[in-house]
Design a protein around this nucleic acid. Structure first.
Lengths: 349, 349
DNA sequence: TAGACTACCGCAAACGTTTTGGACGTCAAC
DNA sequence: GTTGACGTCCAAAACGTTTGCGGTAGTCTA
């Protein structure tokens, strides 16, 4: 099933068959019709390896999924893939997926893809403030689009979601409910998103002239949420509300709180509706971000410049029931003091 | 960065360079060493498209992820990818991933992969009793391995988990706790796994000479679990315990039961530890199954026969707290009657 | 010395497609 | 009639790698 077969059947050269299928204007329309009909008749599909060899393109986009043990409760990557996959298929580009643990293993996976010339571009997510992946890809002039930004000084393409505003809004909501001591269970600060979410929480408290509540940072698993909330509740001055950087942390925290805390999460996981009480959370437009990322990357591969390819989408507060009002005795507390706040890092690896 | 470059540098033919790198015995070991050293010095990577063109292989394995809206809460596919990805990378085989909704869209994705000769094999999961995908792949002599089996009469390679035994065991556990009316919230019967799990539940009740409790079948989302359990609790003879085909169904059911039901799920999702009460569930060895699937598929692509490539792994009951004893008044019920049981199909699409 | 054998290397073709540059026939203008 | 433009088609080379087969030189044995 090759061009040669069609050319023999129709008495045309391989060149003409190729040009007819490829849309070249210097093929007579009658000839083109014959070629198209025959190609369809035999269900011709070009050999992509031959094409890509000739064109000097890999014909694929790479994605390395994180595969540390705590990563499997999060549908984020599945939702990315579900949006990205069909869009690339439609453009006849392969989505090449592998998985690696962050660190040396992950960098090896990127090197294999990039230096092995297996991909024309890379999509990556869950960026870190200092992200070795981004630096590597920039060093190698490999087109890529990130979900999330980073401290990298060189310009690169990204789609981010405004976690700072989302967390400011969520904190303001808790303040409006009367809470005056609001804790934060955050992901580690190496992640850009964690940094932004914390800035939003801190900014809202600062604007309200309130001291920050306790902060605990941990990999975003249910277990770490449970442990962190338990710790906070046992402290001398427990918060009455906690903001969680992810819904998974929130599910664990909700379990530990046993009705004693108002809790807001982030991600709007399907399970969030079925916690007790149903979780107030923040929904991010993953599908929209993913679609935009694909567009950007295809443009970059075609030679576009990254200038202007930095977009920030807005998240949305989803109000359910876990953001209860503050206990009555705390509503009387006067804002206006700035004592130092208690801060713990990384409970679990 | 090609063989030609190395051949020029070393004053050898391209043939000899290729053979040296390819391990041919008719190259002098001193020559081979020179070639390997130079290849490493310039970080040579072969052009896979050229290789694959010459070898007549696609060099990739395909996977089509389900992307119906309810599919994103389930880490099953992420866990599959996390095991499959690195193993294929190690074998220098690309994992080509796309996503499609079950039905015409999905079949189109398979056709694109198979008829476009983009893959040398396929891995698929969540098999149906009558599975168009399996029939199609068999029709096209495309090597594939399924996670789960099907009613297809022709032999094919699969790795399954014994859901029937798992559900029999779980039902027996509920019986041992004194439950005599045990409902089932199952996935639709088109799925092989749903059929097997129901058979296990039914078999254990039959062996105990008890009538089956109510059965509701629905796509396995939290919402459907909630609705089904609510329906069962409102019935004239509510069950005292419910077996759920998946943890996601169980989370929803747990929420609806408000402490009135014993519930056992399946999947051991991370979130299951943090439900209230913590969910008793069944853990399946996804990683083991995925690794075995990769081995089988690579063997099939190398020409092995599917005979003997049908394996069934065992799941494990994880006891937590959601399988409470039956209310005292029901423990007195005598086993031995077989009234007809109430059965509803598909609450939500 | 001649013939057989083997180690080692290289020529050429193959894989399927794309693209460059040119050939050829026809038509219109001069 | 000649020249130039244009439509249409095709030969050849390119892409990078692999592999079958053959050539050559060296060694060994009769």
């Amino acid at each position: 099933m090759s061009l040669a077969r069609i050319s023999k059947t129709l008495g045309l050269s391989i060149t003409t068959v190729s040009r007819a299928l490829g849309g070249y204007s210097d093929v007579a329309s009658a000839t083109r019709a014959r070629v198209l009909a025959e190609a369809e008749r035999i269900n011709y599909h070009p050999n992509e390896n031959a094409r890509r060899l000739r064109r000097g393109r890999a014909g694929a986009i790479g994605m390395v999924l994180p595969s540390a043990p705590g990563d499997f409760g999060d549908p984020f990557f599945l939702r990315l893939l579900a949006t990205i996959g069909p869009r690339l298929s439609a453009a006849n580009i392969d989505l090449l997926v592998t998985a690696a643990r962050p660190g040396a293993e992950e960098m090896r996976a990127y090197r294999q893809m990039v230096e092995g010339r297996k991909v024309d571009g890379i999509l990556l997510a869950r960026t870190r403030r200092k992200d070795d992946r981004i630096a590597y890809l920039l060093d190698h002039a490999m087109p890529f689009v990130a979900h999330g930004c980073s401290n990298e000084k060189r310009p690169f393409a990204y789609v981010d979601v405004d976690g700072e505003t989302a967390f400011r809004t969520a904190t303001e909501r808790l303040l409006a409910l009367g809470h005056r001591r609001i804790g934060l269970i955050n992901a580690p600060q190496i992640y850009t998103f964690a940094h932004h979410r914390e800035a939003g929480w801190h900014g809202a408290l600062w604007a309200a002239q309130l001291p920050p509540g306790p902060v605990i940072r941990a990999e975003p698993t249910e277990e770490n949420g449970f442990v962190a909330a338990s710790d906070m509740l046992r402290s001398a001055e427990p918060p009455t509300a906690i903001l969680c950087a992810t819904d998974r942390l929130a599910v664990g925290a909700l379990h530990a709180s046993a009705g004693r805390l108002a809790i807001i999460g982030y991600d709007n996981l399907p399970v969030a509706t079925y916690t007790d009480p149903p979780l107030t959370t923040i929904a991010q437009p993953i599908e929209q971000a993913a679609a935009r990322m694909v567009e950007m990357l295809l443009a970059l591969i075609d030679g576009a410049d990254v200038a202007g390819m930095q977009e920030v989408l807005q998240a949305e507060l989803i109000q359910r029931a876990s953001d209860r009002p503050a206990p009555v005795e705390q509503v009387a507390t006067q804002p206006g003091e700035h004592p130092s706040h208690v801060e713990k890092d990384t409970l679990r690896p």
